[in-house]
């Protein structure tokens, strides 16, 4: 049975891991290559690097981070941030990334999804969506009938006027292999994922959805994977500051009956 994935997310800026709350208040959380190795040894199922530098002159630094990580870490690696051409995708994939995550550039030019999927395969293309409640007063406010979410671009700074469900459906049709869905309302709050958003998106597409933004407790992760219908959970704050280890998370989810890849597989290496 397909295991639910636990994916640490490393927001990288100028070669360092950082994590913000509600997309601001950046705090330093370590060296990306070292953190990647640490999480992989702990039993992480995959890793995401989101390069929030994204300034054109500095963004090539991420290629070096990816290459060094891929030398030592043998789990899937997704890279996002400032990827705006098939050529840059190819450079990242050749450096050892397995998937690229597209956000703003795909909103500006949806054909980029198609170009990437036809050249590298749908499995390489993750479309990241930053979603914000458009007409609700609070996290659980608003009537279900009126509930909808707006897509934001440029790292959550720019409202696009696009509806999340409409965009996610288009991304799937263009060849996206996975959706990385971040709730801007919940991100960094530790109050839990936006489960209504998750359920709406997982109900709208067939491709796997990775839930991001808001995890503060183990129960939150469980809810995202069950009520929310997510295939995987992205976690940053609760891991980077040591609230829980990957092992804590996996033991808990496994005890709650979810299919999980066990930790402690190092024994396989002994011939």
């Amino acid at each position: 049975m397909l295991a639910k994935r636990i994916i640490p997310c490393l927001d990288v800026r100028d070669g360092r891991v950082v994590k913000g709350t509600r997309f601001v208040n950046i705090r330093d959380a370590g060296d990306p290559v070292e953190r990647a190795g640490f999480y992989s040894n702990e039993g992480a199922d995959e890793l995401v690097f989101l390069d929030i530098t994204a300034s054109v002159e500095k963004r090539r630094a991420i290629i070096d981070v990816v290459s060094k990580t891929a030398d030592a870490v043998f789990i899937p690696l997704t890279v996002g941030g400032g990827i705006d051409s098939p050529e840059f995708m190819q450079e990242l994939l050749q450096s050892g990334a397995d998937k690229v995550s597209l956000n703003t550039a795909a909103l500006n030019n949806p054909q980029l999804i198609k170009a990437g999927a036809s050249r590298f395969g749908c499995q390489c293309i993750v479309v990241a969506i930053d979603a914000k409640r458009a007409n609700a007063t609070g996290k659980t406010g608003g009537s279900i009938k009126n509930l909808h979410w707006e897509v934001y671009s440029h790292g959550g700074r720019t409202p696009t006027g696009r509806d999340v469900i409409e965009w996610v459906t288009e991304a799937e049709q263009l060849g996206a292999g996975e959706i990385l869905l971040t709730s801007m309302d919940a991100d960094g709050t530790l109050d839990g994922y936006d489960l209504e958003l998750l359920a709406a998106v997982t109900g709208a597409v067939k491709i796997p959805v990775i839930a991001s933004g808001g995890a503060g407790t183990l129960e939150h992760l469980y809810e995202a994977l069950t009520t929310g219908g997510a295939h995987a959970v992205l976690a940053a704050s609760i891991l980077h500051f040591g609230t829980y280890s990957i092992e804590d998370i996996k033991k808990y989810l496994s005890a709650r009956g979810l299919p999980i890849r066990p930790t402690g597989t190092e024994r396989y290496i002994e011939l």
């Binding site: 397909l2 639910k4 994935r5 199922d45 749908c122 292999g177 067939k206 491709i207 796997p208 295939h231």
Partner: peptide, 10 residues
């Protein structure tokens, strides 16, 4: 079935 089949399986 959700496709692609992505992730860890036995």
């Amino acid at each position: 079935l959700p496709v692609p089949h992505v992730g860890w399986n036995l």
